[in-house]
Write a protein that binds this DNA or RNA. Sequence first.
DNA 1: CGTGAGGTTGAAACCACTCAAGAAGGGTGG
DNA 2: CCACCCTTCTTGAGTGGTTTCAACCTCACG
Lengths: 259, 259
Amino acid sequence: MTDDKEGVVDLGRLRRSCAGCSLRSLCLPAGVLGDDLARLDALVRSRLPLETGDGLFRSGDTLENLFVVRAGCVRTTQPATDGEEQVIGFHLPGELLGLDAISDGHHHCDAIALERTNVCAVPFDQLEDVACHVPGLQHQLLRIISRELVQDHQHLVALGRRTARARLALFLHSLSQRLYAAGYSGEDFRLPMSRDDIAGYLGLALETVSRLLGRLSEEGVIAVERRWVRVLDAASLASIAGEPVTGQRAPDGVGRQAN
Amino acid sequence: MTDDKEGVVDLGRLRRSCAGCSLRSLCLPAGVLGDDLARLDALVRSRLPLETGDGLFRSGDTLENLFVVRAGCVRTTQPATDGEEQVIGFHLPGELLGLDAISDGHHHCDAIALERTNVCAVPFDQLEDVACHVPGLQHQLLRIISRELVQDHQHLVALGRRTARARLALFLHSLSQRLYAAGYSGEDFRLPMSRDDIAGYLGLALETVSRLLGRLSEEGVIAVERRWVRVLDAASLASIAGEPVTGQRAPDGVGRQAN
DNA sequence: CGTGAGGTTGAAACCACTCAAGAAGGGTGG
DNA sequence: CCACCCTTCTTGAGTGGTTTCAACCTCACG
């Protein structure tokens, strides 16, 4: 391939650069232009693809890089003393990873790939340096962390004040939207995670997830076939997702029930 | 009072300034020195004390200020469509408030004072400007948001994978530590929040909180008298707090259920 | 001394959990 | 290509922690 002098663009490099990345608007470069973007780009290292089950970092590791998912899915879990662990989040393309490590320089959760996954690594100390000189980057970094906070708060509402059924509906609904934002179909998609992972995320037993998935399917709200999900009635899904623990009124007889 | 020329210090002003604030090391100024501290100080406005029940901001309000609690306690809640609301956090002296609004410039929760409360207000856009020129401040701001993320993750573990009893013990234990960090007694303190607030925070019914508080008291782990709590056996409290859902070695079979 | 908000306590119902067994893929090796 | 195994998922039955409903208590306050 040629280099980029004389206006000849190295397509391979462009594709790997932030400027050529389809996820740019979701990621750190949003709102960063020209030379500033080049400075950011210079920091970013892409890494060899992770295979299913490969770890990205573990709780206790020193913070060196923040990561951005380019393709695939990464699960973060808070390790518990006894093995029963809470799934904190699933990270889809365009989403950052490792932000909770900024607090004290050490990661507080384990991150592993749920399928073949590509990530970009951004050395955090260098990112901070650049952010000092690029106001747009500082702002975007703050926005991204803050957005994570908002997501966690919604997760808290789900775990604290929703039935199992509403939690699952909320999960599917929000997953659908995030996949769409990342450029995939939000109507017809493959779950990157197992039933057990979903249960861990929603604070439920795996059997409960399986049962409720079946029930939503029976009701015609979604179609499920192993890990494939098709959203048939997004409005119902959203409505079920909104039902709180004491939700006795629903538009169409979708009340609340047992498993 | 005199002004501060000639080396004569205005004690009133000093007391109100960041340099003279006992909470400095917990707050934004941590790691910020000299002239930089003065620049930060210039932004900060203290506000009239809030009385019990006074609101600081509501969901949907435009982000203008971040707030720091100086004395008292502020509760943040995620409003739900039907009135059943999740308590996201209780903010004690030295803790920041409003960070989730950075995401899109609008607050996502309601904040109200649980008792007479003093707060400092920091205009966010000006804070961002200063942070661009004061690397230490940028770093501290990021650290504080990240710490909030870590706290939320622990809250998620509590809601997802702990019995009601463990949640309550965890809550008391962590409240005790935070009060201590803020300069109060961690052994003997007054709860700023009602049983209902605690229930909202822990995803429980208020009656459950009341019952379990009574039980911990019977067992001699704590002493409770209305809103006064004394920690009698911090080790037991921590141990109970750590018990996961499948806690097979509890003094008396504590299993696990849902809402 | 009534009144009301906040808190306690009891009894019954219920949602989700646990235990347990069976089905359905996806590999692997013969 | 089929038999086999292993993991993942589904389905059933029974248990139990928490919730709900309801009554009562108890300060604080006018």
